[in-house]
Nucleic acid binder design. Structure first.
Length: 227
DNA sequence: TTCCAGGCAATAC
DNA sequence: GTATTGCATGGA
């Protein structure tokens, strides 16, 4: 049998549908409340439903680099409140952006990254970007590029994050730390279905938060028994 | 207090 | 090609 499908089914059974990528409800009474179901949309893979949501996902992917989502959401809410959560405004307000995104860390770097990406985004003029083009933007690495492609554009690329590497090496499903190697393994052994890829990645993160954040990584992981 | 977070680019071997 | 380092806030 396919180990990846077995793992996916076990994770879905354990945690249920994750409703990624979170879309913030800025009209809610407490838009900064996160980690809750607010902003998530289990079993609904229709997002983004407009350009504003699409850009929000892209910006969130950049701000989420090595940073907890709660802090990312604070920055996104700050940007939205000031009307700066869009490419057109960001390119002309970099200094202001820099202050507004402080909660999500690396604010000097990420302000530049958001500016670079925004210029690129505007040039796209609605077109779906190529992976190669995204990687050419300074600040957009492999994981961020693939997060944008999968969650903002529904392109079926498999996202490989630090958790994915740790978890599947521990389980013995893979024996590699090379990003492209791992990505192609997942893409080659799963149906090329963006909904499946979105759900699987979200489930991996949820599971890894429980079993692969603290050393020794993998301790107590019940998945070890089904592989 | 220490450790970690849904990485990336620059630099050193 | 692989290993290391700086970047930064906030929560556990």
């Amino acid at each position: 049998m396919n180990d990846l499908i077995n793992v996916y089914n076990a994770l879905l059974d354990e945690y249920g549908h994750q409703g990624w990528w979170p879309i913030i409800d800025y009209n809610g009474s407490n838009p900064t409340k996160t980690g809750s179901i607010k902003g998530y949309h289990p079993k609904d893979y229709s997002f983004p439903v407009n350009d504003s949501q699409r850009f929000e996902i892209c910006a969130g992917a950049i701000l989420a680099q090595n940073t907890g989502w709660i802090n990312v959401e604070k920055s996104l809410v700050n940007l939205k409140r000031e009307g700066l959560l869009c490419a057109e405004k960001i390119v002309n307000s970099v200094l202001q952006v820099r202050e507004l995104i402080k909660p999500s860390g690396y604010f000097n770097l990420k302000a530049g990254y958001l500016e670079n990406f925004s210029r690129f985004y505007l040039k796209l003029n609605g077109r779906i970007p190529e992976r190669k083009e995204l990687l050419a933007v300074k600040g957009i690495g492999k994981e961020t590029a693939d997060s944008i492609l999968l969650y903002a554009y529904k392109v079926p690329v498999f996202i490989v994050d630090a958790y994915t590497k740790r978890m599947f090496n521990f389980l013995g499903v893979i024996d590699s730390v090379d990003y492209e190697n791992i990505r192609l393994f997942f893409e080659g052994n799963l149906p090329k279905d963006y909904e499946l890829f979105e759900e699987f990645h979200a489930l991996i993160v949820e599971h890894a938060k429980n079993f692969y954040s603290k050393k020794p990584y993998g301790a107590g992981d019940f998945l070890k028994k089904i592989i």
